[in-house]
Nucleic acid binder design. Structure first.
Lengths: 332, 332
DNA sequence: CTGAAAGCGCTTACAG
DNA sequence: CTGAAAGCGCTTACAG
């Protein structure tokens, strides 16, 4: 297919009566005489000239592209994250290159390398999955955002998931629950590990409490099935802590399907506080994570590192907040 | 910032003992002797060589990038669309460049031009907003997907929104409602126009029915406020047709907040059938749009056009389906 | 089948 | 302050 004719800096230069390099300098802020600058900008405006990103990134320096790895876009958690990331990048004149689960991690990395991204924001890092490591091996700066990896040599930001697990446990214990279940997130995710460990520890410390654990994989359908089975058991729990809000929604719906009234016979606590959770029809008790702030800090850590690769690695932990709504109550 | 060392085709060529152009031919499928090919691929594998997209798109032909304009990612409708679009593009070895509402339409177009996208999928086209026109003016192939523009010289795909409006109207009229309200989507959106017109016509034809119209802008908060006000009026409607599911959720929640039982005192019909609508806690009566199919057909129309720019414009209208759930009932 | 060469549209030293 | 020139990493005719 033939390339359609596009205005180039050479043509701008010719029409403005200057050298092509002068056009470049005008656009990138080199020293140019005011009158020359005016003349060039006039021609630039006339054609609404847009310099080719391909040429620009080929010639060196930076591509202006930041890879953003978000596996499951359909979890309502992530679009908020994309938006926050995109906002910060846009303020700095950068573009985002999205990698989702339509491709394998392997393919994603290959693409990011071909595109020559300046750095990568990982939001879905998994223990034992070497993608983040392989990315740094290629010399690409990385930030772990939301989910972290212990001892990983890069900047990291996450919510205080330990406190999140504790707050959930204390709330349910405080209401008097003694038969509790935990719907776990993806096994290799730091969020699930930290929330799980803290919740388990706190519940174990209480004594005389039964804790059942089931896998929800941070996924609606998986959690729905798991909770359905759980509720059908001979001695179902009176309270549920779900490692994220989406699984809590699944629990609420599975309970509704099973005719188990919430919170009368089943209390449900989530984690995230996605906007849906505040809906009257849902009104989920949950632990709020500063989602947009996590995204923002993540991008900023990465951009700081691009400016200065020798900065020591930083690891930020942002505070969470318990949000009591109407899905929890004392056991019947 | 210094460019980190990356393996290039020149180095691959040197190590394989061939010319750089031979490496290129091996990778792009030119005629190469089997033994030569084997040797080159071996070195390519050894370094996991990834050819620079910047260089590739600079030198001509295509950039392999498709722009996708989706304004509101937080409407759960759109992530599904992104996913479907991305899946098809990925199958064809293409990448997506996302434009959302973090930037103005103007800025979005400038970016797409700089990136040299091969084509653009518009999902949020608006009457009177010249972005799609300006894109085609730049010679960039365009497809209008989901929302269309009357007489626009490009391929278009949409759901049968006229039938959607009719089905919603007939359902509510059939239940016996005589005081009905319609929560409209964004004024310039074809979806809102078509659904609105059809619903209005059908209701008008029934006779003796009061139809109130309010603006919801396809936005949760806007619709929530509008419905709240409506329900507080002296003679509130007994049924609501919302131009999309998100506004229907807002209506359900506003009704809950106002203590108006659904469907006993208020019936609510949405449009889209996003996955949330099937949740037990929501269980929304709505009109299903073949969302993924719309995305898929849209991308395919665009890709066909890239292969053959002289194809006549096609305009596909995909069937909708009424989905009766529990938010509608006869008036009290 | 294979190599040498041109050129895509820029940025960046380097002269002047 | 400004221009001429090199070069980024590829693809694509063009020879042989």
């Amino acid at each position: 297919m033939a390339r359609r004719p596009t205005v180039t800096s050479v043509q701008i230069a010719r029409e403005a009566g200057v050298a092509q390099s002068t056009v470049s300098r005008v656009l990138n802020g080199g020293s140019v005489a005011p009158e020359t600058k005016r003349r060039v900008l006039e021609v630039v405006a006339k054609y609404d000239f847009q310099p080719s990103q391909a040429a620009r990134s080929l010639v060196g320096a930076r591509s202006g592209l930041i890879g953003v790895v978000i596996r499951d876009l359909t979890n309502p958690f992530y679009p908020v994250m994309v938006k926050a990331v995109e906002r910060v990048l846009h303020e700095r004149g950068l573009r985002l290159s999205l990698v989702t689960d339509v491709m394998s991690a392997e393919e994603g990395l290959a693409l990011l390398r071909r595109e020559g991204v300046d750095g990568v924001v990982f939001t879905s890092a998994l223990e034992g999955e070497p993608l983040a490591h392989r990315t740094t091996d290629h010399g690409i700066p990385v930030v772990l955002c939301h989910r972290t990896l212990e001892g990983f040599p890069a900047d990291q930001v996450e919510a205080d998931n330990v406190t999140a697990g504790e707050l959930a446990a204390r709330h349910l214990l405080g209401l008097g629950h003694r038969r509790i279940a935990m719907v776990r997130g993806v096994a290799g995710a730091s969020t699930a590990q930290q929330r799980g460990l803290a919740f388990r520890r706190e519940v174990g410390g209480a004594g005389g409490v039964t804790l059942t654990e089931i896998d929800g994989a941070y996924d609606y359908s998986t959690a729905y099935e798991a909770v359905r089975t759980l509720l059908a058991s001979s001695e179902p729990p009176t309270a549920l802590f779900c490692h994220n809000d989406v699984m809590a929604y699944a629990a609420l719906n599975a309970a509704a399907a099973a005719g188990v009234p919430v919170p009368a016979e089943l209390s449900v606590v989530g984690c995230d506080d996605v906007s849906l959770s505040a809906w009257e029809r849902i009104d989920l008790t949950t632990v709020r994570q500063p989602l947009e702030r996590i995204a923002q800090v993540g991008v900023e850590l990465l951009l700081d590192r691009l400016d200065d690769p020798d900065l020591p690695h930083r690891h930020e932990v942002l505070p969470v907040e318990f949000v009591e709504r109407s899905t929890t109550a004392p056991p019947a």
